[in-house]
Design a protein around this nucleic acid. Structure first.
Lengths: 254, 254
DNA sequence: GCTACCGTGTGGTCAGACCACATGGTCGGA
DNA sequence: TCCGACCATGTGGTCTGACCACACGGTAGC
């Protein structure tokens, strides 16, 4: 039913067995965030594989945002289980965009779909009771509006990204938050290029700030439909203005 | 302004330089799907790094669904650029679920959000003009209803997954399709466990088939709201019935 | 003409050797 | 007693070289 006989099973490549071992330890609860993995040399000896194979598996886990590695000795050294899905999501989406697997247009559209749901859920929750989870997002808005301290485009965009991410986090769905972060970061280069060619940045940033406040207002008013409409307009307007969707990772010339 | 002097810049780890090189080649169009990467040994020599570092980078690309490797010689050997985004999504989400980064509940919820948008878009498009893109999905439904040929639960679930994926593909947004596939696959183990404990599989499968037809009917009728409602009920009912969301990767006992 | 063979290049793996680094203990002096 | 310098230890990061299994493609022999 399961394995035919005794042999085989070993058909997987060495680094895959390492990955499987770690995954099963995670599922079994033998490994939880904060724990240290055994050292590469110990893992290699324990699993009967070479250290290079262990390293290939750890590299994958690192890129996927599951572990953090550090040299040296002490409590902070070695490979430690973390859980930072957004990092892996970013790398995944960005490379897929680069490889033509994803169109920038679809990335923007997907982000819109996810974020629409985020604000809808937040508005629903806020209609029932005040939402303290929104506090981080509000702080970011305050930071964006500091009088007398003009932000550069880059600084503004950084805060803008943080605001949208804060909304996603506030909704409580980590999967959506990670995906949104990944989608956004993966096209960040295009967004920044788009912002740099805008004729009047002052006008744009002023409008964006107003739209952010309006979105939050709709959420706090407990109006899902309004919040949804506003986030949609917010995203679509910006991307239409900067023409981000038409930017193509490929250079057709030369 | 940028680099202090001549040195440094090399601060990135060796395997990262390999990754960056490949990414930039992808963006520049020097590498497109179907192309062969240079051999590991050539890449190592060219970039001035060890072969093991090259391998770590290639391993990442493989897990992320960007390349396919094959031993031997000939046209099919070596590392070839592909673009299978769902593979990377699956690995990422599955491991994050295992590491407690993602809750199964949130995965299901996110899938629901994405799929709601898929059927909404399909219904809108279908309202304007017939949608030939739905053909693959319809074929799968036919296969699920073959009379006299009772499908096992596993076979049924495989077709079920294919149906939902076909809908996503029909919507034309590859990012959403890939993410949905990844989300679905990552919790497939839990879904199958849930199905295996259902009291009356015949009743369930009959109901699911009817629901599938109803969803398609709503799409073809060009009724976005109805399609949205039906897909939501379809997914929520099933997951409530099988209690998938409550399945926890951890075993609290022993 | 066909078959069997073998050279060649590929990824897959392992072993061993360094390196830089961060820690934590030890030893010496104040 | 206290404190600073020192160094042994263990970690990840990297490179080198060596095999292996495999798949192709040409070649020699039938």
């Amino acid at each position: 039913m399961s394995a035919a006989s005794a042999p085989a099973v070993d058909t997987a490549r060495a680094w895959e067995t390492v990955l499987q071992r770690i995954e099963s330890d995670l599922i079994a609860g033998a490994l939880t965030p904060g724990d240290h993995l055994p050292s590469e040399r110990a893992l290699a000896a324990e699993l009967g594989v070479g250290r290079s194979s262990v390293r290939e598996a750890l590299r994958v886990l690192e890129v996927l945002g599951l572990i953090r590695t550090q040299t040296g000795s002490g409590p902070q050294s070695g490979a430690i289980i973390i859980s930072r899905p957004s990092g892996g999501m970013t790398a995944l989406v960005r490379l897929q965009v680069a490889a033509h697997g994803f169109a920038v247009r679809d990335v923007v559209k997907t982000r819109l779909v996810l974020e629409s749901d985020v604000v809808t859920e937040l508005a629903r929750a806020s209609g029932a009771a005040p939402t303290p989870a929104l506090a981080p997002a509000l702080e970011i808005l305050d930071a964006m509006e500091q009088p007398g301290d003009e932000l550069t485009r880059d600084e503004f965009l950084t805060l803008d990204q943080a605001f949208h991410l804060a909304l996603a986090v506030a909704s409580g769905n980590e999967v959506i938050a990670a995906m949104m972060a990944g989608l956004r970061e993966s096209i960040e280069a295009y967004v920044r290029v788009g912002a740099s060619v805008l004729p009047s940045w002052d006008d744009t940033s002023t409008r964006l700030k107003a739209e952010h406040r309006a979105i939050v207002a709709a959420i706090e008013a407990g109006d899902p439909e309004l919040a949804r409409t506003r986030i949609r307009d917010h995203i679509e307007t910006y991307h239409a203005e900067t023409n981000v969707s038409s930017i193509h990772p490929h250079r057709e010339d030369t």
